[in-house]
Amino acid sequence: MSDTPLSEMSFEAAMKELEAVVTQLERGDVELEASIKLYERGAELKKHCEKKLAEAEEKVAAITLDGDGNPTGVKPVEGL
Rank of each mutant, 00 (worst) to 15 (best):
K52F: 03
L18T: 02
T4P: 01
I63E: 04
R27V: 04
D3P: 00
A56L: 12
S7L: 08
E44H: 05
G73A: 06
E31H: 07
V77M: 08
A61E: 11
R41I: 04
E55T: 06
I63A: 03
A20N: 10
K47W: 05
V77N: 06
K47P: 02
Q24L: 15
V77G: 09
A13R: 00
E40N: 10
L80I: 13
E44D: 08
M9D: 03
L32Y: 14
M1D: 11
A13N: 02
L53E: 14
K47I: 05
R27W: 09
H48D: 00
A43V: 14
L80F: 12
T64F: 04
K51T: 14
R27T: 01
G73C: 04
E58H: 04
R27G: 05
C49G: 02
G67P: 02
A43H: 07
A54N: 09
L38K: 03
D3H: 04
D3A: 11
A43Y: 07
E26Y: 10
E55K: 03
K52D: 01
K16I: 04
Y39D: 00
E8H: 15
E55H: 13
K51W: 13
L45H: 01
K37S: 10
M15W: 05
G79M: 05
E33G: 05
M15N: 07
H48Y: 05
L53Y: 09
L45P: 00
G73R: 14
E17R: 01
E26T: 10
C49E: 00
D29E: 15
A43Q: 07
D68Y: 09
A62G: 05
E12P: 02
E26W: 04
Q24V: 03
E12V: 13
E12I: 14
K52L: 14
K37V: 12
P5A: 15
I36H: 08
A34H: 06
E33L: 09
V60Q: 12
E33F: 11
T23A: 09
D68G: 06
P71V: 11
K46N: 04
D29W: 14
E26P: 02
E33N: 10
E40H: 07
E58N: 12
V77E: 11
A54I: 08
S2L: 05
A43R: 11
K46G: 00
K46E: 00
K37M: 09
A43T: 14
T72R: 10
A20K: 02
S2E: 06
R27H: 11
Y39I: 03
D29Q: 13
G69A: 13
T4S: 05
P71T: 06
P71G: 06
V30C: 04
K51L: 14
R41E: 01
S2W: 01
G42H: 01
D3G: 07
G67Y: 10
E78Y: 10
K46R: 10
A56S: 08
L6T: 00
E31A: 11
S7P: 00
A20F: 03
K59M: 15
G79C: 07
E31G: 15
R41D: 03
K46H: 12
L53R: 13
A34K: 05
M15L: 06
A61Q: 07
A13Y: 00
A61W: 03
I36F: 14
S2D: 11
T23H: 12
E40L: 14
E26M: 08
M1C: 06
V60W: 08
A61I: 03
V60Y: 10
D68C: 09
G28R: 14
D68A: 09
V74Y: 05
P5C: 12
